[in-house]
Write a protein that binds this DNA or RNA. Structure first.
Length: 453
RNA sequence: GUGGCUAUAGUUCAGUUGGUUAGAACGCCAGAUUGUGGAUCUGGAGGUCACGGGUUCGAGCCCCGUUAGCCACCCCA
């Protein structure tokens, strides 16, 4: 077994990753933040299996998603696949439990999904999505609420500079109808979606190639996709372009209503911008569509996207299930926060370090830590009675914020040092049977240092 | 899936037209300081040069394959 040639090389599959504490701690914090924002709006948690019958996942898929599916045969000879998003499982789930759920139904789902596509920076084969959806209602109140949730979410995550880009599929469809491009809508929208990235000339070329658009049609499409200015200004310019087209006028009216509601709900207009170049590649969107960009890092792409769909579960049930939802890309957002330096290098989730000073006093340290935990403060007792300097170095490296130090001298005097590791400040506190004063001193010190957990 | 670039200590990288025992910085461990961390100094551990084959008297360096990473396309979170 010790023979090196027989040793198995430890490694992870392409596109899959291990998570060390310093990346897992912020990851969990983000998930907890998303969870609490979703719950504050009344969204309920659900979960579904990682594996589904292949036919469930391929039913609505395009050739593209089929290629990305991890599919195989299980031990019983069933054709199965790993879910590649959380929306298709929701459709199956809603169709299957329709009667038990009732409508409207609001759920959130934070879970990993798998895509067998090529990797790239911030793009992996296994990643977490944080979805929230409202199904069973066509009310624009749900659309408005989607904007509010996204807005609250990014504020709660610590961002102030971001913009939620909003558009409406029916406006796009109305415009395309007037231009005679309605049949090729999917290709045209896919091309428009790339406008910011590849520029108008390349978009025109793509539309000519994939949608057979004439030069005049391309020019018209690009003209409306490039409309800019304040929301009022953009809407003003769109109005005549959809005038007389029922689809376009409906879309425009809905968009106006959503903007008004979002403003009433507290979203400042600079954070919710009408952007007619937002198209979303997925063809099942039928109404409002959203993408969210970080002002400091627009190149990373959308970190939270979604939109309204008319009929989520038509493949699985005859029930009409309209809805709207969005998905936070946790791993992409983490990659962004990493490059923006927004993540603390903390490798411990407990803020208090208890030094193991005198070997015979272990029980005293254990009691001290227990009192802190009872007060809701995480505490770790060092496992070895090593030199104090080494223990403090360990505490410092891991990002502990307060250290408790009690040697023979302190214990004999019925005292304990409470040391703030950020400032170096240390106070000596009386150590009562219930350690109440120490707990109070720890709370005081923790309040002085910023930090989470 | 297609095309391009890359792979040397835990990390970031040196390594000269192929030529003896592969280096640095940071990190890690220990000591200077048998009760006080983030500074300094000293010492130490750690690499079959991603893996497998080939060319050569000789390969970290050249060739082929595999794996992984990065970039573009595609698509998307």
């Amino acid at each position: 077994m010790n023979d090196k040639s027989q040793r198995i090389e430890p490694r992870t599959l392409k596109g899959f990753r291990d998570y060390l504490p310093e990346t897992m701690i912020p990851r969990e914090r983000l998930m907890a933040t998303a969870r609490s924002v979703y719950r504050s709006y009344g969204f309920s948690p659900i979960d579904t299996p990682a594996l589904e019958y292949l036919e469930i996942l391929t039913g609505k898929g395009s050739a593209e998603t089929d290629k990305q599916l991890y599919k195989f045969e299980d031990h019983g000879g069933r054709a199965v696949a790993l879910r590649f998003d959380l929306t298709v499982p929701l459709a199956r789930f809603a169709a299957q439990h329709y009667n038990a759920l009732g409508t409207p139904f609001k759920r959130y789902h934070i879970a990993p999904v798998w895509r067998g596509e090529n990797t790239q920076a911030g793009r992996y084969r296994e990643f977490i999505q944080c979805d929230f959806d409202t199904i069973g209602t066509r009310s624009l109140a749900a659309d408005i609420e989607t904007a509010l949730v996204i807005h609250d979410l990014f504020l709660a995550l610590g961002f102030s500079e971001f913009s939620i880009r909003i558009n409406h599929r029916q406006i796009l469809n109305g415009l395309l109808e007037r231009l005679g491009l309605a049949q090729q809508a999917t290709h045209v929208l896919r091309a428009i979606d790339k406008l910011a990235k590849i520029g108008p000339a390349a978009v025109a070329a793509e539309m000519a190639e994939t949608a057979g658009a004439t030069a005049a049609q391309s020019a018209d499409v690009l003209r409306f996709a490039a409309l800019a200015g304040s929301n009022e200004e953009v809407l003003q310019q769109v109005r005549p372009l959809v005038a007389g087209n029922a689809t376009g006028e409906t879309g425009l009216a809905e968009l106006v209503r959503i903007l008004q509601g979002a403003a009433a709900g507290g979203v400042p207009p600079q954070r919710l911008c009408v952007d007619l170049s937002i198209a979303r590649g997925l063809d099942y969107y039928t109404g409002a569509i959203f993408e969210t960009f970080l002002t400091a890092l627009p190149t990373i792409g959308s970190v939270c996207s979604g939109g309204r769909y008319d009929n989520l579960a038509s493949l699985y049930t005859s029930q009409q299930l309209p809805g709207i939802g969005a998905s936070l890309g946790l791993d992409r957002l983490l990659a962004a926060m990493e490059t923006l330096g927004m993540l603390d290098k903390v490798a411990t989730p407990a803020p208090v370090f208890v030094a193991y000073f005198v070997e015979s006093r272990l029980d005293d340290y254990l009691k001290l830590a227990a009192h802190l935990r009872r007060a809701g403060i995480g505490a770790e007792v060092f496992p070895d009675a090593k030199r104090l300097g080494q223990q403090l170095k360990y505490a410092d490296r891991r990002g502990f914020r307060v250290a408790l130090i009690a040697g023979e001298d302190e214990l004999a005097a019925g005292q304990c040092q409470v040391k703030n590791l950020a400032s170096g400040e240390s106070e000596t506190i009386a150590l009562e049977a219930d350690a109440a004063s120490v707990v109070a001193a720890v709370k005081r010190q923790l309040a002085k240092t910023s930090g989470s957990e």
